[in-house]
Simulated scan of single mutants.
Amino acid sequence: MRVLAVLFAVVSGLLVAAGPSSASPQGLWRLTDLAAQRVAIADQVAAAKYGTPSPIDDPAREQQIYDSVAARAPGLGLDPADAVRFFRAQIEANKLVQRGLYARWDAHPSEVPSPRPDLSTIRPVIDRLNTGLLTELTSPARSSRSCPARQLVAAGMADVVHHFDALHARALQVATSATCTG
Rank of each mutant, 00 (worst) to 15 (best):
N130I: 03
A46G: 09
S143Q: 15
D33P: 00
A46F: 08
R128D: 14
Y66Q: 07
S24C: 10
S21D: 05
D57L: 15
A36G: 14
A107M: 13
A70W: 09
V125I: 15
H108N: 13
A9F: 01
A141C: 02
D79K: 04
A155T: 06
D33S: 04
L129H: 05
L34F: 10
P80D: 11
P113M: 14
I56T: 09
G19D: 13
G75K: 03
A9H: 13
A171D: 03
E92K: 08
P140V: 01
L4E: 15
E62A: 14
R116F: 01
R61T: 00
A71L: 10
E92P: 00
A81H: 05
V11H: 12
I65F: 02
H163W: 04
L152F: 11
Q90G: 03
V153I: 07
T121V: 12
A154E: 10
L137Y: 02
I126M: 14
S139P: 04
S177W: 06
S110Q: 04
V16P: 00
L7T: 06
A60H: 02
G182H: 02
S144M: 09
L28Y: 09
Q26R: 14
A23V: 04
L76A: 08
G77L: 09
L96Q: 08
A71F: 09
P53R: 15
I41Y: 05
H108A: 11
A103H: 07
R104Y: 00
L76V: 06
R145F: 10
F87E: 07
V39Q: 09
Q98I: 06
G100P: 14
Q173V: 01
D159K: 12
Q151G: 10
P74Q: 10
L78V: 10
A166M: 11
Q37K: 10
W29L: 15
Q173Y: 00
P53H: 11
E111D: 15
F8H: 15
S22R: 05
A35P: 00
I56W: 05
Q151M: 12
F164T: 01
T176C: 11
V112S: 00
T135I: 14
Y50W: 15
S22A: 15
S24L: 14
S22I: 00
G100T: 11
L4S: 07
P80C: 15
E62R: 07
G13I: 04
I41D: 01
A23E: 02
A17M: 14
W29R: 04
A17K: 09
P117A: 14
T179L: 08
A89T: 08
S120W: 06
L167R: 10
L14W: 03
C147V: 04
T52G: 10
T181D: 00
T52N: 03
I91H: 10
A158W: 02
L4Y: 03
P148A: 12
Q151I: 09
A73D: 03
I41K: 04
L31I: 06
V3C: 12
G51N: 07
E111P: 00
D79F: 03
V160K: 13
T32D: 02
P80Q: 15
A171T: 06
D67E: 12
P59T: 10
I56R: 09
P148E: 02
C147P: 04
A149L: 15
A89F: 08
T181C: 01
